[in-house]
Computed example of a mutant assay.
Amino acid sequence: MKIIKLIKLIAVNFIVIILFLMLADPLLGLVLEDDPGISREISFKENNPLSFAKVSSYDNNTEIEFVIKQTDEHGFIIGPGDTSEKKIDIVFMGASTVELENVQENKRFPYLSIKNLNDSLNTNFVSRNAGVGGNLLSTTNLLLTTKVVPLHPKYVILSSSLIDMIYLSKNESYWTGSKKYLNRNNPKTETFRGIKNMFFPNLWLQLRKYMGLSNDLEIIKQAKFSPLNKSRILDQYEKQLDVFINTCLIYGIKPILTTDYHVPKLIKANLRKQGVFNDKENQFYLTDLIPSLNNLIENKAKLYDIPLIKLHELIEQNKNFVNRNDGLHLTNTGSEKVSETISDYLIDKFQNEKN
């Protein structure tokens, strides 16, 4: 009985102490004349560092059911057997059309284009794929300043802006809508997140995929903002593009831009099927907004006197280069062709610089 009474006494005292601290905590700022501030964090989407996963193939005409997706310590996607610890020279940035997780690892253009370059010029450039599916340019800029700049690469190649056009068509700006950047820390959430990251970091991500909780397109299409305002959309994007270019230049990194590509008939059918746009909005998006986007990118390259690779000229009339279900994401063949275009451009550029 004495032991039971002692346990009860300890339990009651413990509860009283906890309640006292909970009541006293908000008053500490007044008593100590100090505001400790609110714990918040910037959040962005990235691939898990040092991960090794098997994902479904995206090719139209292949018997290969799965492909490998492997990342380095930074969460950047690497090529087959690439365990190099040398300084990274070239980083590719963008969304899912750069990430290419469903393309064979030896054919993803961020890897293959630089391999072709090295084989041709007998160089040893190290490249990394920092593309992340669903990332907007505003998020890419966060990744640039927090992860890429500290690595001091020589070049950063930016591609994939179509997701920005869809998002800005449905939301007033980068700072509204479903993609939020600033979150207040919740102690309970942080505790569970720490446990998850320590013991099973991939389980929740897979559950989200199967439960449909990470479908960016589904979230975006639910927004009700009118898309038919080209000047507003391009103005929002242009400011973020200026941030990207100037950040690179300030830190001594040479930016390289690419135009965006798609196969109009296929992507039009996909956007209609997904219910993202109605017919009028589809027409605006494909025949007005995207061509204007590529013109903007070309003009920025001229203004800053930086390289530009026109990928849209290669892809738009070649439906076998993209997944027939969406008209956007490259197949193995398409990624190989993009690799050739990028490597040929860089070979000419580097040879001209030597002369």
Rank of each mutant, 00 (worst) to 15 (best):
V67E: 03
I17P: 01
T146Y: 09
T191M: 15
K224C: 02
E73Q: 11
T333I: 01
W175A: 12
P227Y: 07
L28F: 14
T258D: 04
K280P: 04
N270A: 14
D344V: 02
I315T: 02
V55N: 12
E85M: 10
L144Q: 10
N202W: 14
S169P: 00
V91E: 09
V55L: 14
K239V: 01
I18M: 12
L213D: 08
K147H: 05
D164K: 12
V243H: 14
L143K: 13
T333S: 09
P110Q: 08
L271S: 03
F244Q: 11
K54W: 00
K310C: 04
K87M: 07
L168Y: 07
D242G: 06
L143I: 13
D34G: 01
I10W: 08
V276A: 09
K268Y: 01
F66A: 01
N332E: 13
V243K: 07
K209G: 06
G177Y: 08
F321K: 08
F277H: 10
R232P: 01
T191S: 13
L293G: 00
N135Q: 14
S160L: 06
N197V: 05
K310R: 15
I10T: 06
V98W: 09
I68C: 01
N282F: 10
H74Y: 10
L203W: 09
N48G: 00
K221H: 10
P201N: 09
V67C: 01
L100E: 02
L117W: 11
F192Q: 05
Q351G: 02
L32I: 06
I68V: 13
I10D: 01
Y251W: 12
E46Y: 11
I18W: 08
V243Y: 08
A95Q: 00
D72R: 14
N294A: 06
N60P: 04
V98C: 03
I315R: 08
L32C: 05
S292Y: 14
G75H: 06
Y210D: 04
Y285G: 08
L28G: 03
G334M: 05
T341E: 15
G194C: 00
K265P: 13
T145H: 10
L303R: 13
I163D: 06
N183R: 03
L168K: 06
N352A: 14
P150E: 05
L117T: 08
K115Q: 09
T191N: 08
N141A: 07
A95E: 13
D164F: 00
I68Y: 11
K302N: 12
P150K: 07
I219M: 15
S173C: 00
S178L: 08
T71F: 11
D260C: 10
Q351F: 09
A269R: 15
G131D: 14
N102R: 11
S160G: 14
S343E: 09
S178A: 05
K230S: 09
G327N: 00
S339A: 14
E218S: 15
